[in-house]
Design a binder for these strands. Structure first.
Lengths: 349, 349
DNA sequence: CTGAAAGCGCTTACAG
DNA sequence: CTGAAAGCGCTTACAG
C-alpha cells in the first residue's frame, strides 16, 4: 500500500483543498445556512439544542470559516499593510513589531513587504496591498512621488507615511526629529572641542539623509565653523563606499578629528575604520546599535525609538479608520543623545 | 467652505470606500463584464479598439481589481503566512526577509505574525491565517503540540516548521544543527585548555535550548569531563536572570573559566558580566551578533544562517504547493564556528 | 471577438 | 428562533 498522501489531490482538491463550507455543515446538521452562520459567529437567537447539533457538525467536518469570503461581503479585511525598506535591517524589526501589536489590538493582521529601497517596487507592493483591499497602509517611502496612492486614499484606504514624508501628496506622516537630532549630536562634538568634523550619510535623495546633513550644517554654523567640501560625504551605505569616504576625510593635510555618522549602516563601517586609526577620532552616530555600549570606547549615539514610531503611526492609522475626520498631520518624535565615550573624546591634533 | 474630506463618508462609503467595480467599468465602456475582465487580466481575444475603450474607462474611474473577490473564485490566495516569535529579534528579521523574497519570486505576499513565545497565541495566529486561506504556512513553534493544524494540512495548507520541529505531527521542518554546533563550540573551548565550562541557555522546553545543552554535554563527555550541576543554567533570557546565572557560575570555590552562551539574547548579557570580571573568562556564543568582531576581545561564535534557513523553508513550502507529493522531511543546516578571540583565551586559573 | 449565466462562500436584509 | 433569497466582485464554463 502506498503511503498516505499528505493532502488530497485530484479533481476535488482544486479549490482550498476540499474544505467543508457552511452549506456542508448546514446539510449535516439539518439546519439552514444562516443558522450555521449564527453559531460560527456567536450571534444570539439559537436554541442550545440547535447550537449543539451545528457545533457537532462543525467539529466532525473540521469546518473553518473562510474569511476570504466573509471579507468580500463585509467590506473590511481587518488587514493592514506595511511597506518598508528591508525587514532584515535592525531598525525595521522593532518598528514592524510595534505596528503589528497595535493592529492586533484592533483585531487586524499585518502584511509586510520590503521595497529594497526601490521606488518601483514600493509602488508595486503598495498597490498590490490595495488590490487586496487592506484597510490601511503604513509606508516607509522609497520613492519621492506618491501621487499613485491618491485614488486609493480617496477610496478609503487609511494611509500613514513613516520615517520619511510622502512625496507630492498631503498625508499623515510620522518622523524622527532628524534635523534636531543631528544638530544636537554635532553640537556635542563641538562642545568637546572639535572644529573639523566629518559627516558621512546615506544618499542625498533620501529625506532622512538630507535632514541630518542639514542638522550638521546648522550646528556647524551655530559654532561659526565653515564646512569644507572634503568633510561631507553622502552616498550608498555599502561598506566599500563608506570606508573610502571615512579614510579620505581622515587623511590629507587637515584631517577631521571627529565624525558624525548618518545612520546605523554607515556606523558599522565607520567604527571599523576608526579602530584602525593610530590616533583617537571622536564619533557620534545617528541610530543606536546593540552592543554599542560594550565597544571601547562606547559609541555615543543619537537614538531613535523605532517602536514608538511604529506605534504612533499605527495609532494614527486606526484613528483614520475610526472615521474621525482628521486633517493630515506631520508628527515629529524627539531623538535622544546617549553619551558613552566615543563622542566625548577630545580632538587629537 | 469646509476643507475637502480626505475620503468619502456616509452611505456610499460603507464597503471599500466607494470603489468602482468591473460592472461600473463595463457600463462606462459599453461592453460586457467579461470583456473588462479580459482586459484587466491581459487575456487575449480583445480588439485593440475595445481594449482602448475599456482602458479609458478604467483610468477615468480609477478602477483597481479587487483581489479579495478574485481569490474567492480562484481558490488560491497567493499569500503565505509566517508565524514567528518576535519580529524585533535580530534573528527573525533576515529570516522573514528571506521567506518574503522566495514568496515574491512565486508571486505571493507574506503575512507576518509574532507569537511572543506564547503557544496559545501561536495557535490563534496560525488558525487566523488558515481562515484567510493562506496557501502555505511557515511556523516557528512556540508550543509543542501542533495537532491543531492537522485538519488544515489535510485540507491543503502547505506547512513547514522552522527553527524547532513540529510537536506531535509529522511535517517538514528546517533546523540548524543545534546539537552539532554547540558540541563544536564547546569542544573548541576544551581544545584551548578549559575544563570548567559553564552553559547558559534558554528555557529547557524550547527545542533549540535542549539540543544545545545536549551538544554541550556531548562535548564534555567526549573530553572526559564530569559536568557539575552549578555549571549549567537554563531559563528565561531576560538580563536579570542571565546575569545572576553568570555571576553564580563565575564565583564560589571553583568558578568556570569559560562560558558557552546558548543564544543571542543570553550573549548580550553574558558579555556585560564578563566585562566586569577581573580575570579573563573565555566565551563562545551560539548566534552571531553585529559588531561582535569589534568587541575586545572579538566574540567567537557558532553562527546560524537565518536567511538560508528562511530560504530553505520557503523553497520547501512552494515545492509542496507545486503539487509534488513529498514525504515530510527534517532538514538540518550546518552552523559555522567563527573564531575572533574570546573563545581562544586560555583558562585564567 | 464578445458576453450572459452560474457560482466561489460567506453576510445582509427580510420574512415567517 | 429559523431560513430562503439576494448580493459582495470577481472568474469559470459555455454559447453565440
Amino acid at each position: 500500500m502506498p503511503e498516505t498522501p499528505r493532502r488530497a489531490v485530484g479533481i476535488a482538491a482544486n479549490r482550498y483543498g476540499n474544505r467543508p463550507t457552511m452549506k456542508d455543515v448546514a446539510a449535516r446538521a439539518g439546519v439552514g445556512l444562516k443558522t450555521v452562520s449564527r453559531v460560527v459567529n456567536g450571534e444570539p437567537g439559537v436554541t442550545p439544542e440547535t447550537e449543539r447539533r451545528v457545533q457537532e457538525a462543525i467539529d466532525a467536518l473540521g469546518f473553518r470559516r473562510n474569511d476570504s469570503a466573509r471579507v468580500l461581503r463585509k467590506g473590511r479585511t481587518a488587514t493592514v499593510g506595511l511597506v518598508l525598506e528591508d525587514l532584515a535591517d535592525p531598525f525595521y524589526g522593532p518598528l514592524s513589531r510595534a505596528v503589528e501589536e497595535v493592529a492586533r489590538a484592533h483585531g487586524a493582521l499585518l502584511i509586510n513587504g520590503s521595497s529594497a529601497e526601490d521606488p518601483d517596487r514600493e509602488q508595486e507592493l503598495a498597490l498590490a496591498l490595495c488590490a487586496r483591499r487592506v484597510d490601511g497602509l503604513v509606508v516607509i517611502p522609497a520613492g519621492d512621488d506618491h501621487r499613485y496612492l491618491e485614488p486609493e486614499i480617496r477610496a478609503g484606504v487609511a494611509t500613514v507615511f513613516v520615517d520619511r514624508p510622502a512625496g507630492r501628496i498631503d498625508a499623515d506622516c510620522v518622523l524622527s526629529d532628524n534635523f534636531g537630532g543631528a544638530r544636537a549630536g554635532v553640537a556635542h562634538l563641538v562642545a568637546h572641542g572639535h572644529r573639523r568634523i566629518g559627516f558621512i550619510g546615506d544618499m542625498p535623495r533620501i529625506h532622512t539623509a538630507a535632514e541630518r546633513l542639514r542638522g550638521y550644517r546648522a550646528a556647524m554654523e551655530d559654532a561659526g565653523i565653515a564646512v569644507e567640501d572634503a568633510w561631507t560625504s553622502l552616498g550608498a551605505t555599502d561598506p566599500w563606499r563608506v570606508r573610502r569616504a571615512a579614510e579620505q576625510m581622515l587623511s590629507g593635510p587637515s584631517p577631521v578629528t571627529a565624525v558624525f555618522s548618518g545612520n546605523n549602516r554607515v556606523t558599522v563601517t565607520v567604527i571599523r575604520v576608526l579602530a584602525e586609526q593610530s590616533r583617537a577620532v571622536a564619533l557620534v552616530a545617528f541610530d543606536d546599535l546593540e552592543l554599542a555600549d560594550l565597544l571601547q570606547p562606547g559609541v555615543t549615539v543619537v537614538a531613535q525609538d523605532a517602536a514608538a514610531i511604529g506605534r504612533t503611526a499605527a495609532d494614527r492609522l486606526f484613528r483614520q479608520l475610526d472615521g474621525t475626520q482628521i486633517a493630515p498631520e506631520r508628527i515629529e518624535l524627539p531623538t535622544r543623545l546617549i553619551t558613552r565615550g566615543s563622542g566625548e573624546l577630545p580632538p587629537a591634533d
